[in-house]
């Protein structure tokens, strides 16, 4: 499997990745940065919600739910 520049949405449950960059509209990027989701930070995909709903990621002891669309904007390198 590809390990560099993977979309967060495509990570397996339980897998971790390091943020490579965040695409999407500026306000989305800004909000992600404010929450501490910045390039270089390690995230873990904790759970996928039922029926292709949002995913739950963990970074720096906090958890965040992201919709599939948003998770596609976030690019990571699998670690």
């Amino acid at each position: 499997m590809q390990t560099l520049n993977v979309k967060l949405q495509d990570l397996a449950e339980g897998a971790s990745g390091k943020i490579r960059f965040i695409a999407g509209p500026p306000w989305f990027r800004q909000r992600m940065y404010e929450l501490g989701l910045l390039p270089g930070v390690q995230v873990k995909l904790v759970k996928r919600a039922p029926l292709g709903g949002p995913i739950v990621v963990e970074f720096l002891t906090q958890r965040l739910a992201l919709s599939p669309k948003e998770a596609n904007w976030i690019h990571v390198d699998v670690v």
Binding site: G24, P25, W27, F28, R31, M32, L35, P54, V56, Q62, R63, L64, A65, L66, S67, K69, E70
Partner: peptide, 11 residues
């Protein structure tokens, strides 16, 4: 405009 979700999940 794409909708925005990103919700903090407290314990």
């Amino acid at each position: 405009v794409p909708s925005f979700f990103a919700l903090e999940l407290p314990p």
